[in-house]
Design a protein around this nucleic acid. Sequence first.
DNA 1: TCATCTCTTGCACACGTGTGCGTATCCATT
DNA 2: AATGGATACGCACACGTGTGCAAGAGATGA
Lengths: 347, 347
Amino acid sequence: MRVSIKDIAKAAGVSHPTVSRALSDSPLISAATKARIQRLAQEMGYSPNALARGLVTRQTYSVGVVVTTIADPFVAEIVQGIETTAHDHGYTVILCNSGAEPQREIAAVEMLRSKRVDGVIVTSSRVGALYLEHLERIGAPVVLINNHNEQSGRYTFSVEVDNQHGGWLATGHLIQLGHQRISYVTGPANSSSDLDRQAGYRHALIEAGIEPDAALIIPGNGRPDGGERALEILLSLANPPTAVFCYNDMTAIGLIAAARRRGISIPKDLSVVGFDDIVFASYFEPPLTTVAQPKAEMGRLAMHMLLSLITAREDNGEEISNRVVQGELIVRASTRKLCKRVERRDK
Amino acid sequence: MRVSIKDIAKAAGVSHPTVSRALSDSPLISAATKARIQRLAQEMGYSPNALARGLVTRQTYSVGVVVTTIADPFVAEIVQGIETTAHDHGYTVILCNSGAEPQREIAAVEMLRSKRVDGVIVTSSRVGALYLEHLERIGAPVVLINNHNEQSGRYTFSVEVDNQHGGWLATGHLIQLGHQRISYVTGPANSSSDLDRQAGYRHALIEAGIEPDAALIIPGNGRPDGGERALEILLSLANPPTAVFCYNDMTAIGLIAAARRRGISIPKDLSVVGFDDIVFASYFEPPLTTVAQPKAEMGRLAMHMLLSLITAREDNGEEISNRVVQGELIVRASTRKLCKRVERRDK
DNA sequence: TCATCTCTTGCACACGTGTGCGTATCCATT
DNA sequence: AATGGATACGCACACGTGTGCAAGAGATGA
């Protein structure tokens, strides 16, 4: 049978409030009985009931983390950062895979609400207006990762990478290597991160005096198969590019695999840049040039922000604002200088 | 303010037990009031308090999942399987990274005990006797993944891949390709999975009439850097092997990267087999031949087993036993037939 | 008409913990 | 010796929910 503070109270010949106070190290209890009760609790194998405690204190010390799928290594690294920070502050993580199905997302949110989590971190790729409304109903602060939300509510904030700057870095790197015709392979449709990376790409081109060519924007989907298809489209172009910037590393990997099958050498015939710097980026052949997102760091930041929001509800809130972190260009071997090939300038 | 069943009771002009029964669809309540109360609950935005419910029913519908690190894509895929199955049965997953630090593991277990989880799944690489004892103290059933535990307790069982058979498959494949000198690069020290894979390796060699050579067993650590170092050792051998079976894919990747730097061609000069079939195995160059573990499936199985154990506590338990699943050899391009090279037979 | 039975609802308690407030004890001060 | 204050502890209630049991209201049969 499970031992409660009442059992300890009976064993020690005191009342249960005394035990409660002794275990929480209250100054109201004499040092002698405090020590006696603590030893007793230890001996009897007492474990405080977090449910009962949460019921009365209205604090559960647990946070919900909603992801599309934890099997995505990019997501997993973020969650790693979240969990570690949460643990260090005595918080517990409840994991929810939404699988990008709205119905499942709703169910997850309802569950978190029911469990009375102290806060929520969401790293689904897109967050519809309807979903955000549900999120607000939890009645707990919410932090979004890589989800730009225009009107951050009273208690919802976000941590995100500077996608535009990242796109600018990647494209600028290719330009500096001498490339003029540079493709962009898009990510999932309508994602704000895709649009921002693309904006950075355009910005870098214009800055260098290169006219952006709509034909060089090739649709992808953020997954390897999207990259594979993109390469085929790219090759069918009348005037194919000498370099390509991909929405993310997964896309780049697919594209490179397809290129290898077609006998196209990377980076000799085509330079490729990715985005994210997933775990294996340096182990691919060729090692992938990419824009690194500080994934674990972003998880840490999000959790810290959430902790601030949680405690800010009691204290009058210190000012918290959305946080934007910078990606970092990591040059490996999938890009190289454009040289000694006849450069075909259109128009 | 949060709405409780008492608030609904007041609004409906009934007592709170009536509301409780109406919402749980009890046959004791008339259809009319049941409908009225359910509609009222909907309107008032009622969300049941899982804490209070768990306190009285002694069921929390949440399970703890302890992993070394969720950032390991292999682990993440297992957790994906666990979470999906848990969700489908109305259960919630509490995630704990142990980071392989014993102190952290203990803390995690204590936290899970405090939260009164209904069960626990552990997929840390090694589980010491002391740790298992702590685990038992949770007072909830435990399922271990890829952790062979000799004496499974009253409520602890396991799901694991057949490591010995997997090692036999990998080595057999190399033998069939004509290789005679085959190395094995070990995993983390003293892990039972490593010993079992090595046993399968020896078994396949002996079966084929090849004398196992202790010099060909090279220490690794389960990570890429271990594989890189292994390659150097391997090259320094007087009579180097023509093929190598690595403890896992991470090791193989490191080994292949090191080989590339040394100008050694895979699979022309050296055939390489991995283990696990991590997500990117097919995207590496060359695509990796490996023994696939059904990761998501193992997660599913473990969760199903846990559900059985949980419900079996009330019903008299149906018989549950440890489960062993078979890996599958996946032949890609990192291995190939040994041919037309002078074969050096020792002794 | 009265007893019995079914249907519906309320009362009271329990789960385990935290906390405001009252009170008993003891020591020091006047 | 009486008063004051500090110290240490118990009483009672609250958090939100589930459930055994009693009780009231009708309906039905004798």
